[in-house]
Design a protein around this nucleic acid. Structure first.
Lengths: 115, 115
DNA sequence: CGCCGTTATATTCCTTCGTATATATCGAAT
DNA sequence: ATTCGATATATACGAAGGAATATAACGGCG
């Protein structure tokens, strides 16, 4: 089984990463955990880093990608907004379509690399 | 004129960037200038950084991407090997095909961003 | 031989990035 | 009112990245 190269894709805006594999994974982890804290732990990153990524996305997009609440039953939590879900879905579709369209050359380039 | 998001793509191997926009641009600059020094200057990066990028590529691929010479008429120089040319061409083709296949969603996602 | 411009490499410094840690605030439930 | 867990934010420390600088080696050419 040959460990092929990994395909990574991001969209940047003014030298800042708008969306990429890390941010999307974070959003997805928030969807499944319901909090920034838990999502950060799942991904093995600090709360601060997760919060900064979320904050930059909320500022980057016209509509926030998450809705965070403090206090409450379990101390609060964070939910991904419908806009955030759109961002996730759109990014995953881009990734899938892009990879499918270039798979042959990706394999070829991968084949030029050392094992 | 709306400044749309930029599409960036890299192939990674073991958490290291095998090839991406920066490395390809460097290879292309070497093709057009004939030296690492001049290419680095064109791209506004330090010689050291350029050299490290080249070095990592030479190690990453089965066959070196450049052939560097010291001494000689003009002090030496660096040429991109045919393997290096293949890497450039393959990457640019991947980029083009990937973007073409996902253009619609890239535009859509871009539209969700602030101007 | 000595000159020249480039590659190759080490050293130093500064900036950036990320973790760890510490508080303060919030709001539902008890 | 107190408790509890999560958000929001600041600070300090450490690691990594990149620039700037310095130096040696190289080899064709005058």
């Amino acid at each position: 089984m040959k460990p092929h190269a990994q395909f990574r894709l991001r969209l940047t805006k003014d030298a800042e990463i708008a969306i990429g594999p890390g941010k999307v994974a974070l959003l997805e982890a928030i969807v499944s955990t319901g909090s920034i804290t838990a999502a950060a732990k799942v991904l093995g990153m600090s709360y601060r880093r997760a919060w900064l990524l979320i904050d930059s996305m909320n500022k980057m997009f016209k509509v926030p990608v998450v809705d965070a609440a403090t206090g409450g039953k379990h101390g609060g939590g964070t939910v991904v907004t419908s806009n955030g879900m759109q961002v996730i879905e759109c990014y995953r579709r881009i990734e899938e379509d892009a990879l499918k369209a270039s798979r042959r050359d990706v394999k070829k380039l991968s084949g030029l690399m050392r094992d």
